[in-house]
Design a protein around this nucleic acid. Structure first.
Lengths: 207, 207, 207, 207
DNA sequence: GATGAATGAGTCTTCATTCAT
DNA sequence: AATGAATGAAGACTCATTCAT
């Protein structure tokens, strides 16, 4: 009995499972959330879920991939509207500083992300997957902007793009993690703005 | 190793258990590391370990408290040798930038710390314990230095000490986390130095 | 024995578990009987049992509830066939005096019951559950008969129904407990008959 | 190194351990009370306790033996003061009906006794020990009085002493057990008095 | 494809007893 | 005799995954 259902149907089901899983992981953490939690919250049967995903791990991985893709796609799309590197950077910082307001799940997302990341450091497959993702997507995003800025003459020519881009994400993620853990005791927006100001100063200082 | 045993003996045993646990937690993570792992690696019996700690959680908590205390004590001790706020800040940054060399466990420590921190965000008791620790130890450390700098006239009088101290740790920890996860692919030292430079510029810029 | 299983199937499984548990509890006592005993004797897997009962305690409680219900239901059903209070009382006593012959498990049942009862005295929840059961089922059974007898003029009008009913069960249970513990060295039937005779004399003496 | 301490010292220590154990057993039940509880409450060391008793079971058994002996000795002593069988019986009933007031531990004692008794039904050694005790001490106590009464002409000559004595203890213990479990919701004194009245009527009725 | 009952290895924790000092 | 740290065999319970229908 080969597939009777459409590809869309399958996609829809996977999405439903992943969204439910996300809620469960956010609430309890990956390890503490059980398949039964996902079953209960999704309204699907255990067997059904295992039809779409081979394991709990797989749900996790695909979930993370999809969340990353979603966020990065939206950023990329909008980024192309700007011509100047400085504008692009400011736009990016602006997105992060408003992340709280535009994405109510963000705190949870961060927590799930970190947990995932942590796991990955103990699993060669995950680790290299994430390393790639980091280098080819996130770092590249910044590097491209910085290189554009250098080419445009906006940013100093001796700027170490790779280094700055690494630092950029270290800072943004550091702030985000604090926010994810500290919750609303933490002045997230103020932190992003101040950090952004400091970073921008590095880029446009030599004018 | 029998009854009527010295206080040192007991301390030594606790230390042995904690060190073993640290290795296990670092290797597998808190949740994945089992009491049996600790038993096996410590060479002690299960009952013996439970004589010293009521639960796996308790080992974790005491371990983290001790590691924090160790690090903060050493910092505080040395910090008092400097008179100028700027010197203190530079010393602190210097410590962190050399953390790798002076503390071979540091990568593991960071990973275990973050995992702990994450846990804490889902456990009210842990969370308030850590929040306190953060506010009263780490933040206070920086705030005191910044206030001294303001009093000395080294730093601008309108400096928002609390905000800067929060940002300081967000950045340092962001960098550390990347290092903990990325391992030796990450230019940890360079990151700390660059970030430190940026932070110092904020403090002493108005001269 | 797969999914989409009938309600009967589930009931049958629960019953199977409870019956196995009963045997184990009777043989070793509640505390000494282990889940592994029940697993082994039932031929089911541990997980399967935990699918039907949340805990060993829960098996115990449901088992006792069901046993109580069974016995009381049968009594009530037959009791309604008699019109006179005296006949009802004699019927009841008769049931108990023949308990041995009609219920081969009865000795075990008693032992398990007492153990349960003892436990209950140290657990507020259990205790109030049992107290309720005692008052609303067992005591009420007798009180209703005695009140009927008073209304009918069979029994003296100044009879303290509540007191007599409490005494009734104290005596019957005292005898049963001895039987449960002493086993076949104990003249159970003779005891119930003699005690019954003494009790009946209290009720119908004033004619 | 043979015994240095006197026999009295040893007896005193054993008594101390047993009294502590009694409190622990009463509070938590035999199984739930741990040797550590006894250690903590007695103020002695674990090794010391094991010097006086081979096992937890042994403490239990000796404790029960001693409690039984204490109670029976006191009864016997006073019983000899009376000449008439009826007086003896009334004295005995009187003791039980005042048990609550004169022995504040009595409720606990009962619970511990029943638990012990239950255990015994699953352990051949214990069982035969208790059966002996029952027959040779408790039953004999009543039988002797009844036989005296028959000889004196106080009680009917055709009285089945053995049967009545068995019933006597079944009723008294039934009432006691209810009291032990139900605690102060149970009209213990009233029950003993009423039951005693019923029993006495059996003995002296034919005059 | 869907269902959910069954599986059983794995987890933390307890505790009577031992024994070196 | 006394001490109390050490032992390790249980014990209750969990949960990712499988598979018969």
């Amino acid at each position: 009995m080969p597939p009777i259902v459409s590809e869309e149907y399958k996609t829809k089901m996977k999405k439903k499972i992943m969204e439910t899983a996300f809620v469960c992981f956010a609430e309890k953490g990956f390890q503490n959330a059980t398949m039964d939690d996902i079953v209960k919250n999704s309204g699907m049967s255990k067997g059904a879920i295992y039809n779409y995903f081979k394991s709990k791990d797989e749900i996790y991985i695909e979930l993370m991939e999809q969340k990353t893709k979603e966020s990065i796609d939206k950023i990329n799309e909008n980024l192309s509207k700007f011509d100047l590197a400085e504008e692009k950077m400011r736009y990016l910082l602006n997105i992060y500083s408003h992340q709280i307001e535009r994405n109510p799940d963000w705190q949870n997302l961060i927590r799930v992300h970190i947990e995932f990341w942590l796991q990955s450091s103990r699993d060669e497959n995950l680790k290299s997957m994430l390393d790639d993702r980091m280098k080819n997507i996130y770092q590249k995003l910044i590097i491209d902007i910085l290189e554009l800025g250098k080419k445009n003459g906006e940013f100093p020519g001796n700027l170490d793009s790779k280094m700055i881009s690494t630092l950029f994400w270290s800072i943004i993620d550091g702030i985000s993690i604090y926010y994810g853990v500290m919750k609303d005791d933490y002045p997230y927006k103020q932190m992003v703005e101040k950090a952004g100001e400091m970073i921008m100063k590095e880029l446009v200082k030599k004018n």
